[in-house]
Nucleic acid binder design. Sequence first.
DNA 1: AGATGTGAAATTCTTCACAGCG
DNA 2: CGCTGTGAAGAATTTCACATCT
Lengths: 215, 215
Amino acid sequence: MTSERTIARLIVYRRLLNRMLGEGVRWAHSRELADLSGVQAAQVRRDLMGLGYTGTPARGYDVCALVRTLAERLDPPGIRRAALVGIGRMGAAILAYFQGRGSGVEIRAAFDSDPRKADRHLYGCACHGIGDLPRVVAEEQIRLGILAVPAGAAQPTADLLVASDIRGIVNFAPVPLRTPEHVFVEQVDITAILEKVAFFAANARVGGPLTRSTP
Amino acid sequence: MTSERTIARLIVYRRLLNRMLGEGVRWAHSRELADLSGVQAAQVRRDLMGLGYTGTPARGYDVCALVRTLAERLDPPGIRRAALVGIGRMGAAILAYFQGRGSGVEIRAAFDSDPRKADRHLYGCACHGIGDLPRVVAEEQIRLGILAVPAGAAQPTADLLVASDIRGIVNFAPVPLRTPEHVFVEQVDITAILEKVAFFAANARVGGPLTRSTP
DNA sequence: AGATGTGAAATTCTTCACAGCG
DNA sequence: CGCTGTGAAGAATTTCACATCT
């Protein structure tokens, strides 16, 4: 009912619904949400069932009310501030990507071990030396970390984040992290993803399964 | 036996084994691979079982031979060339990231609708206007596409890739794509991933499940 | 003793199918 | 009627547990 897969789909539904809201759409059927997000209609209904939210057979789901319900369920009370560690090409791209995007999460500070990258602003975000991380994370009450450091630095950096009382990490380094159980880690391994797509592109048979997404 | 999850794990094992090889390690037990990749030992054994590859109870798995077996199984015969579409911050970061990395996949050409970004080289990769895509993709026998375009351009660009006989797409735009069944699509939705981590970071209970990775 | 290979159980996730409502 | 909510079936995936080998 609150599995990782389910939450990932709810997040996708919410974005679709927000877009609909902007287009003035008031009602949506499970079938539409399903088509737009690439899942089965029954899956959408079951996912929404878990929210306790209920639509009507006649009009479907009230887009506005559903967005509110999803916000209640998905938006954590105190967790929306993130720290980015590693201001290389990938880190800078992530920073740029999140600027102006009305996501629920906001990157409050960036860190790099290279002192030349510290003490300036990049895409509107303050940059610090890595030594300032514990202090800034505590001061700004940051609870999320985004790791965009080289593979060799990933584990020590994760340890530092954990020691600074971070609760969740998105790791772009191609190294599985060892963390305490109370820290949620999501591995985003772009190289591995490309290799996977290469594999299934080669072995794609017509009539195969539908396209999948990364939860 | 050849599910998406399984292939994703095999790719991770392979990278670990390659690293071991570089460190001179000759033998590995299922337990070590499991610990390093964050899964159960039984899972590793079952995954390797599917390869038809067999270890010995005494020493475990022969790292060198296993890497060869994995290469046979995972490396598609003709599919290793990719095209990047969208040379913005994210696209440039991906390009930089893949340069020098000995991955099985290589980015052969980059495209952008902005003509100012065409006709030059970026991180060693030739850049073209989007109009040249069909020709270059055909000439270079490219079979994979990486989408790093704005959300609004994602679907039309995907259509163009599909028309150019691309077989697999990694989509960084936060929009699910509609593609024919014979095209494998992997959605990498960074905003959604961050929101998911925020959710589970907030709801993290001590004694919860281990960290997960993105297959 | 400790590790592999693997049936079988357990668990998780998805889809079916249909009652019931507007 | 077509759509929702949902029990039940069905698939897929993971984990257990143990015979077997060295």
